[in-house]
Amino acid sequence: MQPERIPLIEFKNVSKHYDSHAAVSELNLTIYRGEFFVLVGGSGSGKSTTLRMINALTEPTDGNVYFNGRRIKDYDIRPLRHRIGYVLQQIALFPTMTVAQNIELMPDILGWGKAERKARINELLELVGLPPAQYRRRYPHELSGGEQQRVGILRAIAAKPDILLMDEPFSALDPLARASLQETVSLIHKKLGTTIVFVTHDMGEALKLACRIGVMQHGRLLQVATPQDIQNHPADDYVRSLFSAAQTNDNAASVIAAFTQLDETEKAEVRAALALGITRDA
C-alpha cells in the first residue's frame, strides 16, 4: 500500500502579472509533505516567481497559494517565514559570526536553549561531513565555497522548518563542488525527511534529485511527473528537448565523477593519454 500523500503547498488558479506580462499563468500544483519537488525551465519561465510565492516574497495577482490547507495571505507572515527555510544562489553568511553562530541563528531567535542549539549544530555538521570540533569555531572566510554553501543550507534547516526552498543554489559552483552539494542535499532529504522545493535550470540536476519534476515555460506548467516518466513520456517537444540535452550533460558529469575516483597514478595516465590524443589531432 502506498503511504498517504499529505498536501503541504497548493497553488489554485494562481497567476502573477507584471503590467501586461504574465510571469505565471493559471498555475495549479500540489506539493506533498516530505517530497523533493524540482521546478525546471528556461530563463523567464516563472519557476523562481513560483518559489517566491510560497514564502510570500511575491504575491499572486489572481488565485491563492495554500500552506497546510490555509491561504498564505491569511497567515501572520513573519511567524510563517520562521517555518520556511530559504537558500539562494549567493549564500550570505554573517562574516563576523562563527559557523556555529550562523547555524544557530534561527533556533536562537525562536528561543531554543543553549544545550539544544549545540546538539543541533553538532548533528547537522556531522550529517554533511564537517566535523564539529574542526568547524564550529571557524569563520566564513576560512571556508571553501562549497563549505560555505553547506553551512548556508544547515542554517536554513537548523530550526526544523516545514519546508526548504532552494533557488538555483549551486549554479555558481564548479562541477565537482556542485556534484558534492547535490549529494549533500539529497542526504538531508533522505535522513531528515525535509520537504524541499528546488529551482534549477540544470535538467541533469533535476533528474538526480527530484521525487517529481515540474516543467515550466512562459509562465505555464507544462508537465508534472517523476524523473522516469518525464524522460520516457515527455508532454511535448519542448520537454523532450530539455531532457534529451540532459542526457549528454549527465554523461559528462559521470566522466568527471569517475575521474575523481582514480588514484594519482591513474589520473596521470589519463592526462598523458589525452595529451597524446590532442597532439595527434593537431
Rank of each mutant, 00 (worst) to 15 (best):
A206Q: 05
K118F: 01
R240H: 14
D167H: 04
S186P: 01
L51E: 10
M97Q: 11
D250F: 00
H201I: 01
Q217P: 00
R280C: 02
R178M: 10
Y86C: 01
Q261D: 04
L110F: 09
R117Q: 14
A273R: 11
A273K: 10
L88I: 15
K73F: 03
M1V: 13
G34N: 13
Q231E: 11
L221G: 05
G145S: 12
W112P: 05
A156S: 09
R240V: 01
A257Q: 11
A272N: 03
S171Y: 08
D236E: 07
G146H: 09
G146L: 11
I109G: 08
R52D: 09
Q231A: 07
Y238I: 02
Y238C: 01
L222D: 00
E116L: 09
T98I: 12
H218D: 12
D76I: 03
D237T: 00
Q231D: 02
N68P: 01
A177M: 15
H233R: 11
N68D: 15
I109V: 15
D62N: 15
P132N: 04
A252K: 10
I109R: 07
S144L: 06
T184G: 06
S144A: 06
G193F: 07
E126N: 15
R70V: 13
E147R: 07
I54T: 12
L127S: 08
R150K: 15
L165A: 09
P132H: 06
A115F: 02
F243W: 03
L276I: 01
D167W: 03
Q2A: 15
A158D: 05
R155F: 09
N13Y: 02
T195I: 10
Q90C: 01
L80C: 05
T200S: 06
N102I: 13
T50F: 03
G46L: 15
N251Q: 10
T260G: 03
Q89K: 13
D162T: 10
K190A: 15
L222H: 00
L130K: 11
L176C: 04
L93W: 13
D62V: 14
A159E: 07
I153K: 03
G129M: 08
L57K: 09
P107Q: 10
G214T: 04
I196A: 02
P132S: 06
P60M: 12
C211K: 12
P131L: 12
K12G: 04
G214M: 04
I230P: 00
L88S: 14
G44I: 09
